[in-house]
Amino acid sequence: MDTIPSPLITAEELRRALGSEHPPTLLDVRYKQGGAPGAPEYAAGHLPGAHFVDLDRDLAAAPGRAGRHPLPAVDDFGAAMRRVGVSSGRTVVVYDDWVSAAASRAWWLLRWAGHPDVKVLDGGLGAWRAAGLPLTDSQPVTEEGDFKPAPGAMQMLDARQTGEFARTGLLLDARAGDRYRGEVEPFDPVAGHIPGAVNAPTMENIAPDGRFLPAAELAARFRTLGVADRPTAVYCGSGITAAHQLLAMAVAGYEGALYPGSWSEWCNNPDNPVATGPLPG
């Protein structure tokens, strides 16, 4: 396991960075599946200098056969990021109020598209508030960025490759156990999981205060799952919390591939096999 800089930043570290000579570009990616829209909450109060990024509009294409949150077109994503001031030579920090799940999507997309320096505020908005740091309803000055995506810096799989990966590597299903087992399915038309996938719920990476577990604890968890021994890929319902799992793996020093279409794409193809119940021991 290689030692790499953490992709997380604490509230205090961010406070200092925002007051420095070269502050990061700050993105508010508030989004909750089935929850209130993020834009009104952003308007009511956000971190000073933060620009709002809409997950459905800026970090995904329209839902369809490729899933509920397909990757956005590269040119569209680049334009959206430039509109909120993202430049290749400037650190980007992203945060949300959903245990960093939406922020992880932004982190993964920016890293996949070639941005070299992206961090997630550990604990998100809650950690900033808990530190007694201020919010504002003022809109930041818009500065056009120069970021031009160059995709391929992070590993990605399509449905065919994911099916093969489940047989040759370690495929993690980041959803809750009851969805993995097919006992419930609140969002997609078919319940179950990709045959051969191992359940590894994303929420088990998070402490009660909403921050990620320490790197050593995450590393121990992923070693138990077998991440240290086999190439690893991750999927979830629509590619959002799978990015969160990959962020947790990065904190622990591991890399993996994302299946962006995830279960929402997989289960919409009747030719794809479906498994239910726990993984056979």
Rank of each mutant, 00 (worst) to 15 (best):
A197K: 00
T232V: 08
G226K: 07
L170I: 09
T241H: 06
K148S: 13
G196W: 05
A127R: 03
R223Q: 13
T25W: 02
A197E: 00
G182D: 03
E255M: 06
G256R: 05
S100Q: 14
G196C: 04
E183M: 08
M156C: 14
D117T: 11
P273E: 01
S238D: 07
W98M: 12
A275G: 06
P149N: 11
T232G: 04
A257K: 01
L135S: 00
A153L: 08
R179Y: 06
A36G: 00
G210V: 01
R223M: 07
Q33L: 15
L258Q: 04
R167T: 13
Y180F: 15
L14M: 11
I4L: 15
G123E: 06
A103P: 11
G85Y: 11
M154E: 15
R175T: 03
P186N: 11
N272H: 14
R90W: 07
D58C: 13
T10I: 10
K119F: 01
T3R: 14
E255G: 15
A233T: 03
E265G: 04
E12K: 12
I9E: 09
G114S: 08
G237T: 07
A191L: 04
F187M: 15
C267N: 05
N269S: 11
A66V: 02
R15P: 01
T25V: 15
G19R: 09
G253S: 04
N268T: 15
S264V: 00
L110I: 12
V99F: 13
Y42Q: 02
R105V: 08
K119N: 03
L8Q: 05
D137E: 14
T276W: 00
L59S: 11
L110E: 09
L218E: 07
V93H: 11
V94E: 08
R83A: 15
Q155T: 10
P70I: 10
G49D: 07
A79Q: 14
D173C: 08
D209H: 05
R221S: 05
A17K: 12
A39W: 13
P231I: 01
L71F: 09
A150I: 11
S20P: 03
Q139R: 14
L247H: 04
T136L: 02
D178Q: 13
L109G: 09
G123R: 03
G85M: 06
P149I: 10
E21W: 03
T202S: 12
T276K: 09
L121R: 09
L171F: 03
G49L: 05
E12T: 14
F52G: 04
G64W: 10
A50E: 06
W112R: 08
P48C: 07
